[in-house]
Amino acid sequence: MCTVIKPGMLTTVQDRGRTGYRAFGMPVSGVMDRYAASMANILAGNDPGAAVLEMTMLGGTFRFPNETYLAVCGADMQGTLNGKKIKNWSAFYVPANSELCFGYAVNGCRSYLAFYGGIAVPEVLGSRSTYTRAGIGGFDGRALQADDVIEIAKADRMPFAPRELSYHHLPKYGSEVRLRVIPGPQEGLFTPEGLRSLFSQSFTVSPRNDRMGVLLEGPTIEHAAGPDIISDALSAGAIQVPGDGHPIIMMADCQTTGGYAKIGFVIGPDLSKLAQAKAGDSVTFVECGDQEAVAALAAENLSYEKAALG
């Protein structure tokens, strides 16, 4: 059991997302940074895709009446346990009557808290992810509030061992993010100059970014014949370019369909990097083929396997 003292800026329960209902207009949701969330789960002895708490920019304060085990990965929110610093990217023992406190992210912007045993909220449409716009999933379909009580599931796993993630697996959160992009499906609706600006210029993360999408400022991308298409399907990673030419990269809570031309898709493994980008950070794009994308996926999964082995 875990009582929320302060919820932080935006703290929600998320897992790998609610797939299988996109044909019904149901967004996938799920963790924004799959890598950090998976590593937190692995350190906590859970499946990489188990439900975690996703904290945004400012972390929360939590009380634990009973002893338990936790892991924290992602942005460094200067966590303390009963006043003592805890290491980021580590799993640790929590004695009974403990208070865990997080502050502002000093690098990155999303931090993941995994509970040994997992978070015991009911699945909705096969997922524990919170989708706040429809008020479903997670904790009552909403972000956590003070006095919420989160139940922790009983672990059916091996005994827990406190540890830190090997430095081999630690990502670097800087102010420059490079994203690999597979062009399409509507790259033909942009001028050659438009395509060139995507891959040759540097963009800036706008303050207008949330779980639905990340808006980029800076250079504009030129359409060949207007921004509108007959609405078709999209998913996280899609780069939509509306009429003003400023690209929007769709993220976890994005709608299932959209009506702006999509110049390309950021590959899945690179979305974790974008999830940690803050307003003002710079973003560049590099073209990528299927082979490189699949190799990146395989490398990501291999990291999880290695981390699980210790």
Binding site: T19, A23, I230, D232, T257, D290
Partner: peptide, 22 residues
Amino acid sequence: ILELVPTYRSLMVYFDPQRINR
């Protein structure tokens, strides 16, 4: 094949690229 999303004039087919190539 993971998921199908029919829209006005196209069908999105989501697949597992580690099990089948494009």
